[in-house]
Simulated scan of single mutants.
Amino acid sequence: MADRGERPDYEFVDMNTRGEGAVATAFANQVAYCENAGAPITARVVGAIADVLASDASNALIERIRTWHGAPLADALPLRIAGGIHALHLSGDAKELAPIYRGISADDAALVRDAMLAFEAPLMPWLDGPPQTNEAGRSSNFSAAMLWLADKGLTARFALLEIGSSAGINLMMDRYRYDLGGIVVGPEQPAMHFAPEWNGSPPPAADIAIVSAKGCDVAPVDLTDPAQALRLKAYIWPEHTVRFDRMEAAIRAATERKPDLVRMNAAEFVEDALAKPQVPGTTRVLMHSIVWQYVPQDQQQRVTAAMESAGAAATADRPLAWVSVEADRTVHRHMLKVRYWPGGEEAVQLAWSHPHGADMEWLG
């Protein structure tokens, strides 16, 4: 694996850019992001869609993408339509797309153009909302952060609050086992096991426990519903086959016991949760992964204000932490960052992380 200390320089792209040229820039940025994250097939699909947009092909679907009124990168527009294209392949409705997903050389733009023209109606709803990219592998970041927080002196019994939980896969992380650079945490018979390729020193060892986990989403997904589960699978990058196995394991775990998940926006959820009494001897943790860009700016401000207000009232017996795994598109990697109260109000980056948990570079 390449030395992560020698990251390529990428042109900075403002996530909120909109207007002329923004759509083309968003698709080009997504291609680079996928290639850097080891997703060449997804890069092919996104690149082919970009070629269609640059051609004279036209229908309501194509024109809606071309004339996108929002910020296409912040809205994850390339991944919205790529998810729809992948769903056509998974369902078998567009068998002609098979060469792309099998990694066989083909006229990608022609195949994708034909699919976008033929399946205009079923593809259109995929543009209505952001991708649901619920990935269990990201929870390795949360586990490592909890080890670090315990080492900082925060109580090692954690009450988790997650925004943008999608199907709640990461809310079930108390059922997962982790090998983090040789530091092992989790049950002996887990629903899933994660051992990301580790770079740097291991996180500190600690005896941690998750005492509760609750999350929210504006459009929560029920993993026990096959149709909803298929939609989640469509957002999985096809070359990352292990993620399909993880999804099946998550479905089994949710069938045994569903995660505690409510339909609510991020600001309302955080404000409501922080207003409730905190059990003494627990660390309350707000966590999220690859979701902050989808939270409206006014809600981001409300979440931040609520956390800082609660942080000011935090005590050694009732500490508070904020753990996030979000993209830095200047390097096409993800940053694991932590804030905690009392004592560590400034954000600290603990690691660089692969978007699906394949590897971590520990900085903490």
Rank of each mutant, 00 (worst) to 15 (best):
E162W: 05
R177C: 05
P130K: 00
I169N: 01
A150S: 11
S139N: 11
E197W: 08
L127D: 00
G129R: 11
G164I: 10
P125K: 06
R175G: 14
F194P: 01
M146T: 11
W148F: 03
R157P: 00
P196Q: 01
A136C: 13
G164L: 03
Y178Q: 05
L161F: 02
A145D: 10
S143T: 08
Y176R: 06
A136K: 08
I163H: 04
I163G: 03
I163M: 12
A118V: 01
A159K: 04
M192Q: 14
N141Y: 05
L154A: 05
F142T: 01
G164S: 03
P131G: 04
A159W: 00
G153Q: 13
M146W: 13
I183G: 09
P130E: 00
L117I: 12
N199P: 00
P187R: 06
L117N: 07
L127F: 09
G153Y: 14
L154N: 00
P130D: 02
A167E: 03
N199G: 06
R138A: 10
V184F: 10
L180A: 10
N141T: 08
Y176F: 15
H193D: 03
S139H: 04
A191I: 07
L161W: 07
R138M: 12
L147T: 09
G153I: 11
T155N: 02
Y178V: 05
E188G: 04
G137T: 12
R175S: 14
S165P: 10
P187V: 14
Q132W: 13
M124L: 12
H193A: 13
A145M: 14
F119V: 10
D151C: 00
A159Q: 06
L154R: 05
N134D: 15
F194A: 03
A150F: 01
R157I: 15
A136T: 12
P196I: 03
A136D: 08
V184M: 12
P125V: 07
L123S: 01
L117C: 13
A159E: 05
M173F: 15
M116E: 11
I163F: 01
M192T: 05
A150T: 13
V184S: 10
H193E: 06
Q189R: 12
L180M: 11
G200M: 04
P187N: 08
M172C: 08
M172Q: 09
Q189A: 09
L117H: 10
F142K: 04
W126P: 00
T133E: 03
N199W: 01
A159F: 00
L147F: 03
W198T: 04
P196A: 02
L117T: 09
D128P: 06
Y178M: 04
G200E: 08
G168N: 08
Y176A: 07
L180G: 08
